[in-house]
Design a binder for these strands. Sequence first.
DNA 1: GTCTATACACGGATAGAC
DNA 2: GTCTATCCGTGTATAGAC
Lengths: 210, 210
Amino acid sequence: MKSPRQPLKERSGREAQEKTILDAAECVFALHGYRGASLQAIADRAGLPKANVLYYMGNKQALYLKLLSRMMTRWNAVLDDITPQSDPREVLGRFIRTKIELGQRYPEGSRLFAAEILAGAPFLQHYLEGELRAWVESRAAVMKAWSAMGKMDNIDPRYLIFLIWSSTQHYAEYGAQVNAILGCECLSNTEIADISAFLERVILKGCGVE
Amino acid sequence: MKSPRQPLKERSGREAQEKTILDAAECVFALHGYRGASLQAIADRAGLPKANVLYYMGNKQALYLKLLSRMMTRWNAVLDDITPQSDPREVLGRFIRTKIELGQRYPEGSRLFAAEILAGAPFLQHYLEGELRAWVESRAAVMKAWSAMGKMDNIDPRYLIFLIWSSTQHYAEYGAQVNAILGCECLSNTEIADISAFLERVILKGCGVE
DNA sequence: GTCTATACACGGATAGAC
DNA sequence: GTCTATCCGTGTATAGAC
């Protein structure tokens, strides 16, 4: 209402700038980890001077924490509607598909998270031991109930969760290796669908669902 | 024969020094990746002055390449005896167990490799596109033969290899997360055996082996 | 708000004393 | 062979001009 400048609604608002920086930083942190990433590289990728990055984000650690938190919220909705009465086939299938989709939609965020864990989770230790552990235990309890009801084999559900996490995240985190071996620049939608179907089929059959 | 010093066969030979440095470097590179690792941190962990690390290893890149190559040789023997006449249950089961064991025996090496892939495989691109891709294709051909002979379901064997890689490596690369969720400092031998058994059971059943 | 200039610590690598 | 001292580029962060 007041500023006479910016006539064409150019993407020059504060939020747009912040998103540009966050996306650039996510990419650089994903490639090189917390220590290996430099503010210079982030600024270059964002097309801004280094000082602007610090002006908007405060300092390197705050920027990194903001990215971790953004990634956590993206994952929040997963597997949140699960009860002993649910159909394991439907719930676990959707779990696998959703994880694959999230990895495809946010490959840098997935790799950023992976780098944080590789580094020993210095910034996420409390989250892992608290919130995430509780998340796993509550889901595991429901799966135990499924086993007791004969809906699936009697396996340790925590290992099943690890299996689904690892096998789906692989296609984001190990993208460089997957692409080199499959001989493509990046996965097509068809391949993504094939991979989802493969994982669904093998994992569900493997734990006796259906 | 000639040096009168070192009477007690102290571990002061050149090879011992080099191994000390390599092990320290493996750990630091695993935690922070190539760029994030500093020679100072490596030297500190090895208990040596920084200049000695460079004296023995030449420069940072040569040290890193030596570590990658050491890790490749450790993986070399895996899944090398596989023919259409083999028993899939036995071969794939051993594949899974061996990968788990290697991840436990060389956790830093596994994480170092993971960090290299996360970074886009700048030093391993040729290896992935050449040697490793050929390795996968030859194993995939045998598995295709198994499917044709009715020994297992008709699935894409490359995805099966990715599944076994990802699910086993998870326990080395995501050790920090796994330990936080299971609530232990490190995995016991019993847990390792349980995990191997779980993965063998679910994956083999899931692709119709046996 | 935006950017240049700069402060000061740490990075990899080398020279040269011992 | 081993280590101290040092070079010089780059790192994060800030001061201050515009």
